[in-house]
Design a protein around this nucleic acid. Structure first.
Lengths: 340, 340
DNA sequence: ATTATTAATTGAAACGATTTAATAAGCTTG
DNA sequence: CAAGCTTATTAAATCGTTTCAATTAATAAT
């Protein structure tokens, strides 16, 4: 039997209304009663029931992070940094964070994101929603939220449309910088280990590769593009393939670090000197690339920033502000690894 | 203006009570009214207000992960894996997860964990609590929770006492295995890069180092133990010191992977062949050690398991079950890196 | 001394659901 | 046909707060 406001009121000899006012510092209460109430509350160890308060106030101060993940994917690395910053920013704005992960399927059939999101918006438990997705989101899946005027932000996907705030990472720009850097270093035979076709960001990186070559008038060579699935092993396999191609590429731009590491391993096994004989650049900014031999340069994703901005955008929307789309730049790091 | 149960009742021409019964499948309702209600609910897009429901039911189905973190520490790597599994297990049990991070300080003065926890228990927003801490927790800080009979689990710390469930990792055992392995490989000059003294787990690993040497009758040499702060740089510094000692150690057991990597780097710079001239073993199981040159063996912490077990223990307590303390074993991985 | 003003306190409604006990209607049954 | 049983439905209480309007008491103004 938890202590309620009535218990405090009774002990202090006042009405519940007065107790509420004292504890929330509202209205006019004489110092005398204030003291009485505070003592009573202290004595009983009273803490307000947040649920009851939320009901009457119509505010829960809680926002939900809803992560859409395909079964096989692990959020681990991505999660940590993102959540860390999200949490920090969110609580700075005075909100609590709840997290839920939704898979590709629900009760056997494909998850209906639209339905799931509408549910969240209408159950009135959350004041805002952060949608994190590793695969594309269509406007129609969130249009209900817009109609309901429910504040939300999409993280890690670009979704243009009325009422949609999103924060994404500029994979295209990051990739472009990497390829450009290689070209400016004098490379003309640049290969690309690309990611899966259905992966939006992999596509962006690939496009950047193609466009940058064109920008510099370097002919695109089909054999220089090999598709992998983002795992180290597939980086190895891709590298094996590349080593059949003639002329051998002098540089490789890998669509992610894991594959870059795989490629690196194969190169070393074959006695190819990275970065003397062949330059390799990855993408993501995972910690491991700093410790490979040699270390690999990479395009670092601002995951922390992603979380921080998401929180800010959402807070803005909750306050009734405008929707906004933000694309964060990546940073090519570890350049000096290549210079030697 | 959200749709309430009254709106549905009105449209369906019945009482709110009936609507509630239909939607929750309770009580006896004629098929005819059932249909009417369902149609009305469908038409209006009604979703129950979870807050109101929670209030009357006295259940929120939400549990809180409260992470106590010192400012400078990053949860990132640790977080990801842990939360992933925690989330999976928690939702399997039918609960939602909310997360809050508490620093070392609160409003200027040191955080009163006892107060903070009591607050959580009494605000009736959560049905259970998972306490994650990177520094020791004293029984007195959670005894209130026990008194209140509030279900909770401590993760990553061992706290013995009436009413306390915890799940921790066997750092002592893991470290012992590592050192033992080195000894059995023939090493007699084994150094230890230990972690900070105030860090409970660092202490465990250190103790295991000492005990294991003793077990095998190997004299403990003071100069072979160097203290670091778990960061790579301090691993480098420690290694520099170790290289002054004579005879040079033939093996190093580092209290964590980052320091092990630092030591590795220095060794390589000095032309010392890891693992020919000197064996290095780390602790933690971060990804990077797989990709160093050479890869380093390490003692892997079962972080996923930690989350999974925490959820199970908590669910058990919520059900009214017994408290239980579980210590998960670590695993020495990458042995083959040493064999060559 | 009466009225107006201010200050302190409280009763009661409201938030949106669930649930219990009561009611009404329809059937049996003796 | 009255009494007893079911069955379907609902009125009203409840959960624990907050808040608004009303009340009371005390003080100032006329």
């Amino acid at each position: 039997m938890p202590v309620t406001i009535k218990d405090v009121a009774k002990l202090a000899g006042v009405s519940p209304a007065t107790v509420s006012m004292v504890l929330n510092g509202k209205g006019k209460v004489s110092e005398e009663t204030q003291k009485k109430v505070e003592e009573a509350a202290q004595k009983l160890g009273y803490r307000p029931n947040i649920v009851a308060r939320s009901l009457v106030k119509g505010k829960t101060n809680t926002i939900l992070l809803c992560a859409f993940i395909k079964e096989q994917e692990k959020l681990s690395a991505f999660y940590g940094e993102l959540i860390n910053h999200l949490l920090a920013a969110i609580s700075r704005e005075g909100y609590y964070l709840q997290i839920v992960v939704k898979g590709e399927f629900f009760n056997g059939h494909p998850l209906d994101k639209r339905e799931a999101l509408l549910n969240i918006a209408r159950n009135r438990l959350f004041e805002g929603l952060i949608i994190l997705s590793h695969w594309p989101i269509h406007y129609s899946e969130v249009s209900d939220l817009v109609k309901e005027n429910f504040p939300f932000v999409i993280v890690n996907q670009r979704v243009e449309g009325e009422g949609v705030s999103y924060v994404d990472i500029d994979h295209y720009g990051g990739a472009k910088e990497a390829v450009k850097y290689l070209i400016e270093k004098g490379h003309r035979h640049i290969a690309h280990l690309r990611g899966p076709r259905e992966h939006r960001h992999a596509e962006d990186r690939y496009k950047a590769y193609v466009d940058t070559l064109l920008d510099f008038g370097i002919p695109l060579k089909k054999e220089y593009v090999v598709e992998g699935n983002f795992r180290r092993i597939s980086g190895r396999e891709a590298m094996e393939k590349l080593l059949q191609v003639s002329p051998l590429p002098t540089a490789i731009f890998a669509a992610n670090d894991k594959m870059a590491i795989g490629a690196l391993q194969v190169a070393k096994e074959r006695g190819i000197k990275v970065h003397d004989d062949i330059n390799i650049i990855g993408f993501d900014g995972i910690e491991a690339v700093k410790y490979t031999e040699p270390p690999l340069p990479t395009v670092e994703q601002p995951l922390g920033e992603l979380g921080k901005v998401a929180a800010e955008l959402l807070a803005e929307r909750i306050r009734g502000g405008e929707e906004k789309g933000i694309v964060l730049p990546c940073k090519l790091i570890g350049r000096r690894c290549l210079v030697k």
